[in-house]
């Protein structure tokens, strides 16, 4: 049941409750109930998605759009199957770059935010620089980094990291400052050290803010890695997109885009799940 139910909170809750009130139901019944609940909650989404695909297929058929211009869903599906190997080998480097960028970009942002909150001079010195870097379009930055770091994974990780960096920095500074003055007074009365205030008050208080940023970062790090792969790269989903475009292999192009989207959605779901596990208290700002 755990494979299906957790995707909807309500469905899982209902299944739990029925299990507690009556005699424990057989697993098969529980499973069926979980699926039914899931369907009951998600049918508008599912119907809309199927509707879009049907519409897409019928537009292609009715107007007889050539495949190189826009492939039909079935052709994309076929491309996914035929190119599974190529897609997989190119997914791995992109995934690795996105994850590394996510990790280092957010880590740097969190550490910098902690420094800023404890040292206003550091904030005055570096915040404007952070804003300046943020305002350079990432696409314009990619060639510069490729020139410096070459064709390897380094420029891709840096771009994926940079894209995560700024939203997390802003949110984290705000989050660390969100601890109420009364809480800080309380910690002072308890003679708590700065370190204790950071660990016991500021960091927990910042969690909702951090996760709001991490959810953005989860999708944008994939985008950063792909954009970086557009420029003189021979591997990764980004390179595959460029190659498929230039060779008019539209079904492969669409299949690659689907995989990239699936990757972003997966990372987003993982972050959301972690948020649900960690931020259990009610927060006023989310």
């Amino acid at each position: 049941m755990s494979e299906i139910a957790p995707s909807t909170k309500i469905a899982a809750g209902d299944a739990d409750m029925s299990g507690r009130q009556d005699a424990p139901l057989p697993l098969g019944v529980c499973l069926q109930k979980g699926v039914m609940n899931w369907l009951a909650n998600r049918w508008p989404t599912i119907t809309a998605a199927i509707g879009c695909i049907v519409l897409w297929q019928s537009v292609i058929t009715v107007f007889s759009v050539p495949t190189f211009m826009a492939p039909a869903p079935l052709e994309v599906l076929a491309a996914l199957r035929d190119n599974a190997g190529v897609l997989w080998t190119n997914l791995l480097p992109t995934l690795m770059e996105a994850l590394a960028g996510f990790f280092f970009g957010n880590l740097a942002a969190i550490l910098l935010a902690v420094w800023f909150v404890h040292n206003s001079n550091a904030e005055k010195a570096f915040y404007p620089i952070a804003v300046f870097i943020k305002s350079i379009p990432i696409i314009a930055l990619a060639p510069i980094l490729v020139l410096i770091f070459g064709n390897g994974v380094a420029p891709k990780i840096i771009i994926a990291g940079l894209i995560c960096f700024f939203p997390t920095l802003v949110n984290m500074v705000q989050g660390l400052r969100s601890a109420s003055p009364a809480m800080l007074d309380l910690m002072r009365v308890l003679s708590a050290s700065q370190m204790e205030i950071l660990w016991k008050v500021r960091l927990p208080a910042s969690m909702p803010f951090l996760f709001a940023a991490l959810r953005i970062a989860a999708t944008s790090c994939v985008m950063g890695a792909i954009v970086a792969e557009w420029i003189g790269s021979s591997f990764g989903l980004g390179a595959l997109i460029i190659e498929a475009t230039y060779n008019f292999r539209s079904p492969l192009l669409y299949a690659t885009v689907m995989i990239a989207a699936a990757l972003a959605v997966t990372l987003f779901s993982i972050v959301s799940l972690a948020e649900k596990k960690i931020v259990r208290w009610k927060t006023s700002n989310h």
């Binding site: 009364a182 008050v201 208290w281």
Partner: peptide, 13 residues
């Protein structure tokens, strides 16, 4: 000494 504030100021987490 200990201090009790107007708001309970409990840590919500």
């Amino acid at each position: 000494f200990a201090f009790v504030f107007q708001e309970a100021t409990l840590l919500p987490w």
